[in-house]
Computed example of a mutant assay.
Amino acid sequence: MANTRDYIYYDYTKSLCPECLMLCDAKIVFQDAKVFMLKNCKVHGDSKVMIADDVEYYKQIRNYNKQSEMPLKFNTKVHYGCPYDCGLCTDHEQHSCLTVIEVTDRCNLACPTCYAMSSPNYGRHRTLEEINRMMDVVVANEGEPDVVQLSGGEPTVHPDFFAILDLAKTKPIKHLMVNTNGIRIAKDINFVEKLASYMPDFEIYLQFDSFDAGVLTRLRGEDLTEVRKKAIANLNQFNVSTTLVVTLQKG
C-alpha cells in the first residue's frame, strides 16, 4: 500500500511569509477536521496556520460566487502584483465594501497587541484638509460609499473629532462608523450625548475583549474592566448603535 500524507490536499494559493511578509507559495489542506494553510518561504522555510476549524463550512463558503463589483475608478496600476499594488489597483476584484480612514496615529492606550503601534506620543493627527481629501478619494471611487469607518490610532483623541464627523456627514456616505476603545465614551457622558446626534446611519465599533482583568492587561496593557462596563452603559443610555469587537490572541 502506498504511503499517504497526513492531510488531504485541497487547493493551491499565494500567501505571505509570517516572518518577512514576502509573497510565498501555499497549499490549503484538510487535516484533523480543520483547514490549514501550509506556506513555504524561500528564506524562512515552512510555516503552518489554521484558517478554518470546520472543513464542510469552508467548502460551502468557497462555493459562493458572484460577479465582481468594481469601484467607479482605480487608484494604482499593476506593477509588483498582489498584494503590493493595493490602492485599489486595476486587478482588484471588488469595490470597497468598508473603507477605513485613519484620522490619527495617536491613542490614549499603548496596547501590546496593536498592529498600528499607536500610543499617546506616536505619530500625529491628520489635518482636516487631509481627511477631507481622503474622504473625497473614497467618494470618487465609490460614488456613495456603503460604509466608512473612522479609525486610528484612537479617533476620539483627535482635537477636531466632531468636525471630522460633521465633514463626513456632508459626504454621500451611507453608513458612518467610529472605531474606538471606549475610554472617552466611558468618561464623558456629554460626549456620548453628542455622538447620538449623528444617528441614524451612525455606529460605534467598540473595542470589547473581556471583563477579565488578566486578559485585558495582556491585550491592552491595563485593566479596562470598569471602562468597558461604563462605556456600554453610557451608549445604552442614549441608544447609540454599537457593535462589540473582540481581539483574539493565540494562547
Rank of each mutant, 00 (worst) to 15 (best):
M22L: 15
A116V: 09
A168M: 09
C41I: 08
I164L: 02
Q249G: 09
N234E: 03
N75H: 09
T170E: 11
T99K: 03
K73W: 01
I183K: 11
D85S: 05
M134N: 01
C20T: 09
A233M: 11
R220G: 02
L23G: 05
K194W: 02
C20D: 15
E222I: 07
L23M: 08
Y122F: 14
N121M: 11
G221M: 06
Y84S: 07
E226S: 09
A26D: 04
K250H: 11
C17G: 06
A163N: 15
D32R: 15
N63L: 11
C17L: 07
H44T: 08
P18S: 06
M70F: 15
D212R: 04
K59E: 13
F30A: 10
L244M: 11
Y80W: 13
K187N: 15
S151P: 02
H79G: 06
N236Y: 04
H125W: 01
D105S: 08
T113R: 07
Y12A: 11
I232Y: 08
E203H: 11
D212A: 05
L216W: 04
N3Q: 13
K77S: 10
D212C: 06
N65Y: 14
I101H: 00
E129S: 12
S47T: 10
D146N: 11
K48T: 12
G123I: 04
I232R: 08
V157P: 04
L150T: 00
E142W: 03
Q60I: 13
R106W: 01
K39N: 09
S68Q: 10
R133N: 15
L167Y: 00
L128V: 01
K77N: 10
F74K: 05
M70Y: 12
V215A: 07
Q149I: 07
N132Q: 13
Q249S: 12
G182M: 02
N63E: 15
R106Q: 11
N141I: 09
M50Q: 12
N234S: 03
Y84M: 09
A231Q: 04
N234G: 02
L244T: 03
T217N: 08
T90C: 07
C89G: 05
